[in-house]
Amino acid sequence: MTQNENLAQLSAAGVSVWLDDLSRDRLTSGNLAELINTRSIVGVTTNPTIFQGALTKGDAYNDQFNTLVDQGADVDEVIRVLTTDDVRNACDVLAPVFEQSGGVDGRVSIEVDPRLAHDTDKTVAQALELWKIVDRPNLLIKIPATQAGLPAISRVICEGISVNVTLIFSVERYEAVVGAYLAGLEQARQIGRDISHIHSVASFFVSRVDTEIDARLEAIGTDEALALRGKAGVANACLAYAAFERVFAGSNDLWNSLAAIGGKVQRPLWASTGVKNPAYPDTLYVTELVGPHTVNTMPEKTLEATADHGEVRGDTLSGTAEASQGVFDALTAVGIDLADVFEKLETEGVEKFETSWGELLDAIDAQITAARGRN
């Protein structure tokens, strides 16, 4: 099969294209394999919202669900088995990509229970559990970049487990995430672990930044404020990329010592790249965020939009820090409290995943009750 030209150009420019979705139907129908062959897909991400949608629609899980219920499984066990089976099977589909890329790509992410986002010890315990259950080297464990998540990241990395750090909104928090990754690698080195097999990505959310800041700009309502709509998300990501380059392409002594024994860069990952405002180009968070050592996780709608009309112009990230800082300075000047924006987005991000997980638990619990009532 032939790869789509636009997505192939994106890959050639240094962007790993990952699909932000997974379901049993995608696996059994061969759709995921087709996307690998025609859309340059080299990874998959999941989250509680994705699983909530997959497990509560259609009948793809019915046979396995009924078997688990007959065996006496409770709601947590049912969800754990169904989701980890999907992730394991997706890891197997992507195994050739994993091998061909030397472990850089071919990755599939699964998230710890979002209700644990503020509990370091329980996050670490579940990360270890999920790693053992899925039992695939191309797995990434998703840990949120909350204050409690930061030490969990270091501890899990130290255990030799690859991590996808999620729910990053501010450059300041991103820099703390990089520090947590490096600390974990250093701890792993100190106990004699081979760090060359440990990988990580840092998932920086993009579209939600524009959604929140645009609403505040419109509330301010001045010409200066309105002229800044749709600029914050890309500028924020560009500043994060500059921070990435300062550490991983600069003179950071700790990183350079780790790289010398096989340490891998923690790649910036652009998440939430579906454009929510129809006034903006639907490939905005793809074509404006192109650069070496990056990942873009796309919902299928964004993937297909990029395949159809995305204009890949090469590296659009490098050298943008000064202009992006100018955007942030202008936002502050018109009255945007950026610290408040990022705090709100993190809180809402955790709450949204908790809500989706709760809805999934309730739905599966009701299905279990109904199944046992029929028996």
Rank of each mutant, 00 (worst) to 15 (best):
L7F: 03
S11I: 02
A13E: 12
L22Y: 11
R24F: 05
R24E: 15
D25R: 13
S29E: 14
L32W: 02
E34A: 15
S40T: 13
V44T: 02
T46I: 00
T49Y: 00
F51T: 09
Q52F: 11
T56Q: 06
N66L: 14
T67N: 13
Q71H: 11
V75G: 06
I79N: 11
R80W: 02
D86G: 10
R88Q: 13
A90K: 07
A90N: 11
C91R: 07
L94Y: 05
P96H: 08
F98N: 04
Q100R: 15
S101I: 10
G102Q: 10
G106I: 08
G106T: 09
R107G: 05
E111A: 03
E111W: 07
D119K: 02
T123H: 08
L128H: 05
K132N: 12
P137W: 04
N138G: 03
T146D: 07
G149S: 14
P151I: 09
I153L: 12
I157L: 10
E159N: 09
L167R: 08
R173T: 15
R173C: 14
E175R: 15
A176W: 13
A183T: 15
L185E: 13
A188H: 12
G192N: 12
I195Y: 11
V201P: 10
S203P: 02
F205I: 06
S207V: 01
E212T: 00
I213F: 01
D214N: 13
T222P: 01
L226F: 00
A242E: 05
A243S: 15
A243L: 09
R246N: 01
R246V: 03
V247P: 04
A249Q: 15
N256D: 15
A271L: 03
A271V: 04
P278V: 04
A279H: 10
D282T: 02
L284K: 15
Y285F: 09
G291I: 02
P292D: 07
T294L: 07
V295L: 03
K301D: 11
A307F: 08
D308T: 13
G314A: 06
D315A: 05
D315N: 13
T320P: 03
A323L: 09
G326E: 08
L338M: 06
V341Y: 05
F342C: 00
G349N: 03
G349A: 06
V350W: 03
F353M: 11
E359S: 06
A363F: 01
A363M: 07
A370C: 09
